[in-house]
Simulated assay, not measured.
Amino acid sequence: MSDPVVDLLESVWVSIAHLGADLSNEQWDTPTECPGWSVRDQVSHITGLELMLAGENPEPPATEGGLEGIAAFNEGQIAPRRSRPGAEVLAEMNDICARRLEMLRGLPEEKWDEVGFTPIGDAPYRTFMHIRVFDCWAHEQDMRRALGIPGHLSGPVVQHCLDWHTRNMGYVVGKKAGAPDGSTVVFDIVGDADGPRAVAVADGRAKPSAPPDNPTATVHADVDTYNALCCGRTDPSGALAGGLVTVAGDIDLGERVILALPYVS
């Protein structure tokens, strides 16, 4: 039996395929919030990584400009596809993603538990695939914001990605924002089917907890804004000034948390 994460991957890939199906050439060239990346480039990025994970793309082409590491890898996938029609790039993504789903559904249980490289360090392969769901959905939202075509802001994939953000909120609240011992920050996100989430600080450690009746600070935003802030796509100061994200309770702490939200590198 394959891991449930496979169904989430299929859902996000199908959503991206539907988004791209009717785009014009001009829309494929639309710049996104990822510097230097167009809508086409976002799809190329997803395609390149899945080809690598399938073992079909172990050494991407060399790039210019002195890029190293993941930046060099990303550009190596994107640059050769920039001259290709968006529909052709999308077809390539659909092809590799279909083959990846077949591979994942046939993966033995021991392979899911096998520890190896992931973007957050060595971890089980299962963890890598959970990260892939988040990464693909985040890039889908990059495309949607650029195109002005909102969508896929609810459902199992979105809840999975909100869970991923929650996993990292202890770092944001405790380390980056410096919330003091005894404080609790609640994230009240419109569109989160699981309701408000909280991070409590005790004995110098910040970790997810049940939302209390009287939190120290509460951060209010919608799913798209919250995700864009966490991914570093939206400027926190601008979001505060524009009322896209608001604070109740301890204003100083809440605003420090909002300014610290960008954690995805």
Score class of each variant (00 low, 15 high):
Cys97Asn: 05
Asp113Met: 14
Ile16Ser: 01
Pro208Tyr: 09
Pro58Ser: 09
Pro262Tyr: 01
Asp95Thr: 15
Gly76Ser: 04
Ala72Trp: 10
Pro80Leu: 11
Gln141Pro: 14
Trp37Pro: 07
Arg144Pro: 09
Pro208Ala: 09
Phe73Pro: 00
Ala217Leu: 10
Cys231His: 12
Ala217Gly: 10
Gln42His: 09
Ser44Trp: 04
Leu19Arg: 07
Val115His: 13
Ala241Phe: 07
Cys161Ile: 02
Val14Glu: 06
Asp3Phe: 08
Asp224Ile: 07
Met103Ala: 15
Thr184His: 04
Asp142Met: 01
Ile131Lys: 00
Val115Cys: 14
Ala202Thr: 14
Pro35Ala: 13
Phe128Gln: 11
Lys207Thr: 14
Pro58Arg: 07
Met129Cys: 08
Ala179Phe: 05
Cys161Val: 08
Ala260Ser: 10
Tyr171Cys: 06
Ser154Lys: 11
Ala71Asp: 14
Glu59Gln: 15
Cys230Glu: 01
Glu33Met: 14
Met169Cys: 04
Asp135Ser: 07
Asp3Lys: 06
Ser15Gly: 10
Ala71Leu: 13
Glu102Met: 08
Met129Arg: 11
Met103Thr: 15
Ala72Ile: 13
Asp142Thr: 06
Pro180Gly: 01
Leu90Thr: 04
Ala221Tyr: 00
Ser38Ala: 13
Asn74Ala: 07
Gly191His: 03
Ile46Val: 15
Leu8Cys: 11
Asp3Thr: 11
Asn227Ser: 13
Val257Trp: 01
Met169Glu: 05
Lys175Leu: 11
Phe73Lys: 11
Cys34Arg: 05
Ile46Met: 12
Asp188Cys: 03
Cys161Lys: 00
Tyr125His: 09
Arg100Cys: 08
Trp164Ala: 15
Val115Glu: 15
Gln159Val: 01
Ala217Thr: 10
Val264Phe: 14
Val257Ala: 08
Val223Phe: 00
Asp122Arg: 03
